[in-house]
Design a protein around this nucleic acid. Structure first.
Length: 85
DNA sequence: GAGCTGACATGTT
DNA sequence: CAACATGCCAGCT
């Protein structure tokens, strides 16, 4: 199995249910590197796979963070998903 | 094909 | 507010 950090991040993020979000740090920790929060954002940013809801990954501060299609768009999606209100 | 540098959507001190 | 720590990717040589 291709158990690389990048692949693992994709699998974890793809399993996030609607209305729920994970932080970059949480995803990095589940992926096997609790200090690789930045790497998680990098993977989603460079790969931004349509199969991976990268908009469901936010900062540990509760901030939206960033988004390849626009930070405002990410907020809008979370609003629509029900995480925000 | 292999190695190095820079950039990045974070986090902690 | 600013600097440092940690990991991956893209581009260049």
């Amino acid at each position: 199995m291709t158990d690389t950090f990048k692949t693992r991040v994709h699998q974890i993020v793809a399993k996030i249910p609607v209305g729920q979000v994970l932080t970059y740090k949480q995803v990095a920790e589940l992926a096997g590197s609790p200090k690789a929060a930045r790497a998680v954002g990098n993977i989603l940013n460079k790969n931004r796979n349509p199969l991976v809801p990268c908009h469901r990954v936010i900062r540990s501060d509760g901030q939206i963070g960033g988004f390849a299609f626009g930070t405002s768009k990410k907020k809008e999606i979370l609003l629509k998903e029900g995480y925000l209100q």
